[in-house]
Design a protein around this nucleic acid. Structure first.
Lengths: 226, 226
DNA sequence: GTCTCCTGCCTCAATTTTGCCCAAAAATGT
DNA sequence: ACATTTTTGGGCAAAATTGAGGCAGGAGAC
């Protein structure tokens, strides 16, 4: 899914510059000659990032920013011809993410945009929810496991089992599994772990993963790479 | 709760500068003369933000960043004496958040730090009024949802449900929904979520949206694009 | 008062998961 | 080599979960 970027600037050649450089990076870009039309477009669909010139006829970039901030925390980058510190400070105070002084280096702008998106994605994916081993990735937020990006279609028990194996170094005993995943007190046959392993193995083989579940004889299981 | 900031720089006067300005802003600041000691401190307690000089004896700022990124997505600001573009790019590529070229304006740094924290808080408090996913845009101010700009005519419960799904990454459990949208204490049948999903799906299909609500078996739901 | 719409709940059918049994295979001990 | 213990894999059916249609009470509009 392409990231959508809206940009407002009254100077046509700046709009062209933004359009061409950001589009070349694979973003979907829409430019506007003034803040009002950008705001109107946001009401229909909020973009993933906004670039605002500060000095514009009609609403200033600051005013547009304030309006946007009532509805959304979409990242905003200001463009300014003035270098006065107070503008900079004011811009950041009302919630912008960055600013560039004209003339700016397009490559720097692109880099900054990518840095902002990377930051947001990192915040979202909150790291420890996603673990990987070999070509297998388990995403607990999605409650799903993937092999090379392809969904393995695991059931709740299977996901829990695999995730436990992946987050615990070395071999894991059957009793530990029964305690952690099935609940200690439950009257389940000790062999249920084997059932889950059986089904997991089948799905791993079907997906041609380079990961396999090895048996630790008389003890439990551990993950291995072929 | 004070935000904690760690900073590493081999130049004493830079450390003093950072210490005094950031402390004055109400942050808890600890400075280190090299990257190793900063990493060691992170093992004890991860700060809310890290400032790294790139050129340091021992580990470079980049190396410290790479180590940190294995454990955390803590925001990182680089300080550099060099203006070469490749350094900038490299720094951003390995997941930093920003950079400053020495000599830098302390007030600018402080502003940037506050902007980063503000951004994180906004992300967290997910009180977004306008959010989009695929061709769907939900505007909580209007209590309306649009598919490509066309009103979906959703009811209050449906709007709340869809908005919650859109503002929460990954799958959402039925219990979470019941708690957040129907209110925990209420004695509602667990299946009411299914009812809302049923009705939402019907409207999404009718609007020919590229968004669909996927079932996470035994857990809840999540948004997907076709 | 009447009408419409929203929403929770019920039921039945279809689907999926999962614990269990059993026989064969593998590993271990004597 | 032989007996014993453990693991494997197939198959099965009970249990759990979900989807769709329909219904009715209640809030709000007219």
């Amino acid at each position: 899914m392409k990231k959508v970027i809206y940009a407002a600037d009254d100077e046509a050649h700046i709009r062209e510059l933004l359009q061409s450089f950001l589009q070349k990076e694979g973003f979907e870009v829409r430019t506007f000659a003034d803040g009002e039309s950008l705001l109107a477009a946001c009401d229909k669909q909020m973009p993933n990032l906004v670039v605002l010139d500060i000095m514009m006829p009609g609403m200033s970039g600051f005013e547009v920013c304030e309006q946007l901030r009532r509805k959304s925390s979409v990242p905003i980058i200001f463009l300014t011809a003035r270098v006065a510190e107070e503008d900079y400070v004011k811009g950041l105070e009302i919630g912008s993410d960055d600013y560039f002084t004209k003339p700016f280096s397009p490559i720097s702008l692109v880099m900054r945009v990518r840095a902002i998106f990377r930051r947001i994605e990192m915040e979202h994916s909150s790291k420890e929810e996603i673990v990987s081993f070999g070509d297998i990735t388990v995403n607990m937020a999605d409650k799903a496991a993937y092999c090379d990006g392809k969904d393995l279609a695991l059931t709740p028990t299977e996901i829990a089992f695999l995730h436990y194996l992946m987050t615990h170094e070395g071999a894991v005993s059957r009793n530990e599994m029964l305690k952690q995943i099935w609940g200690f007190e439950q009257e389940v046959e000790t062999r249920v772990t084997d059932d889950t392993v059986k089904r997991l193995r089948k799905k791993l083989v079907a997906a041609e993963s380079n990961v396999q579940i090895a048996t630790v004889w008389g003890f439990g299981f551990k993950l291995e790479m072929k």
